[in-house]
């Protein structure tokens, strides 16, 4: 099991879950309301990309050019 990919999957999923999928009011009331709404959505999107690629890397062995 690739530990780095697994860690990236967990961290990415958490960021995506918090900043992309939670309602804005809930994020702000929880004290996580950094920057503007769209910036938080962008951070969440980056988290989702990291989570997705990590999950893909876990199920598919790496190959080189």
């Amino acid at each position: 099991m690739n530990k780095r990919a697994l860690s990236a999957l967990v961290i990415g999923s958490t960021i995506a879950l918090v900043y992309l999928f939670l309602p804005p009011k809930l994020i702000i009331s929880a004290g996580l309301g950094i920057l503007r709404h769209n910036d938080r959505v962008m951070i969440g999107t980056l988290g989702l990309i990291i989570a997705f690629v990590s999950a893909y890397a876990l199920i598919k062995p790496r190959k080189d050019l």
Partner: peptide, 24 residues
């Protein structure tokens, strides 16, 4: 970078990219 370049990777990237953008 982390998986590779190929037809299957291309299909996965082509599907994932626009889907993630749609979520944004």
């Amino acid at each position: 970078r982390h998986v590779g370049i190929g037809l299957q990777e291309g299909i996965v990237s082509a599907l994932a990219g626009p889907m993630i953008f749609y979520m944004y």
